[in-house]
Design a protein around this nucleic acid. Sequence first.
RNA 1: GGGCCCAUAGCCUAGCCAGGAUAUGGCGUUUGGCUUCGGACCAAAAGAUCGAGGGUUCGAAUCCCUCUGGGCCCGCCA
Length: 613
Amino acid sequence: MIEDIRIEIKKSLAKAVHEAFQLSKSPDEIPVDIQTKPEFGEFSSNLCIQLLKAAGKKQEEIALEIILRFEKPEFVDSVEAMEAGGVYYLNFFLDFPAFGDKVLREVLSSKDDYGKSDFHKGQKLLLEHSSINPTGPINVGRVRNSLIGDTMAGLARAVGWDVETHFYVDDMGKQVATIAWGIENKISEKYSLTFDERGEPVLEETDGPAENELLSRYEKYADKPDFKVFFTYVPTTKLIEDENLDSEIDELAERCEEGEEESIGRLKKVVEDVLAGQKQTLERLGITFDSFDFESRFVLDGSAQKAIEDLKALPQSLELDTGANAIDLSEFGLERRGGGTVFQRPNGTSVYIVRDVAYHRWKLGQADANLIVLGEDHKVEYKELKTILKLLGDLKDDNLLDVVHFAFVGMKGRRMSTRKGVIVSVDELLDEGIDRAEKEVRSRNEELDDEKVAEIAKQVAIGAIKYHMLKVQTMKQLTFSWEDALDFEGDAAPYVQYAHARASSILRKGGVFEDTSIPENIVFTNESERDLTRLISHFPSIIFTAAAERRPHLLPDYAYKLATQFTEFYHKSPVLGAEEPEVKESRIAMVKATRQTLRNCLSLLGIESPDRM
RNA sequence: GGGCCCAUAGCCUAGCCAGGAUAUGGCGUUUGGCUUCGGACCAAAAGAUCGAGGGUUCGAAUCCCUCUGGGCCCGCCA
């Protein structure tokens, strides 16, 4: 609706410009912005200064000529030229009763679909995200990937894509072989694990019962399979490092690589354990996947081998002095020290990129377009992969494979590292958050039973955590802090949820919570009503931009603005106490529309909207 | 050594890609506000040489160059 009006304004302006100055401009070239400041109207354009040279006239003359010829599209009430800082803006004001009426009607009739469009209808998007290493529980660093991925999935669906989510499981590498070896050799029973003052793991061989500092720290999660593996992974990596046991691990990894099913089975068992634990955590966050793609599959079905052969056939392919096979991508600005990106070791085994190529060839065949969420540490790898896929002829169009990168989540002072046992697990964060939220909810709602309190506490805590990690631009580095992650005040999910709960509360009190009727006539009597409705009207544009430009943080940003605007409305415009029945009906419609829009926005973020909290 | 990303008040952050209206909010600080639809709230105040320097432009937080600080990458790990 808002975009429709914008397009109409652009068309009309293009026409006016043509008539006035004989300049041909396509509507796309006409700048028209959605205004966030109501005093400048609903839309504005700096077209006059843009035309300065081409028209050869002063801005005020240009403005006059355009306004004179501008044919007002539906809902546009007036155009005004306003000068500021030497620029003449064209500001477009809408016929508010008509526009607002239409907006509210649209929200109330579209309900959960408000904001969505069918732009990509009939197209399938394969979205790979998370793909967390199977070395232990999900930490707050890795989970940024999942949260961005899940939100992008929602956004993609909201603009019409048929989305399929995938999780790539690394069940082949050295890391996994290390764990399998460690478990089979009962490392965590033979060695005590402690950490020195620098946080480095220290091992000590023992005959008696082994101590494990990680186990005592995470006693609560001792039975969770991903933690169990973590307890073994840390001492085993350390042992291998100390004792130079690489060859034993390499041998195991090599046998997997050769497709030996028994070895692959040994690794896969470990991986499935970790994955089961990770899935539990993801499910607590409400994140699920349509498919888990095991790396080993691409070895077993021969597609990795096929990829090696195809790579060797490329003109950029070469054999290095060491006997390894590599591909030289320097002509694409992707230089490697050794002279190329190695894809096959001298012993004939393949490097991860081969399986990545095989995997992506498969993925490209599954959907109309592909999107991946990857940490910034994989930027080069992604570029190489994409370049290779183009060289191989598997990627015909750049747009068919796209990526969202994100910066790392750090901890004050040191980097998170599973290998060193330095993590903040998502489970502990959730548990701590729910604990805090429960106290808060209980103190505010004495009448609620324990079960209801627990449910709301969960929604609040999970909301706060997700919102906190999603409200910042993906490329901005985050420093994790318990206080910030679990802050329930200010620009945080609970504030938005609270506005929603208040809206619900008004509807309950007014006895219209279940009522879906829309009043015959909607009236606007003050600015707070218009500002609120105007902001509601922006939601579809927000979704569209966030989805197209892969900027999920626009959603928390918008949710907070809308919640704030609702609070202002709440204080200035009594709903149930409104004297005129028409005003009361209209305001109820605004409350319903706000509640619906807040819900829809939070829902895209994977955040629930409790009706009381 | 080379490449990519980030830098906005004491702290966190929007705006940057498509340059233009007094730079967006939050936390914290100070002051005030619950007999009126829920105080996880509201109103107000103070707080910014938009990392530094140069350039392009009528106009730069936004584009270009140089530099500084931080992160990431430059594995025959994945």
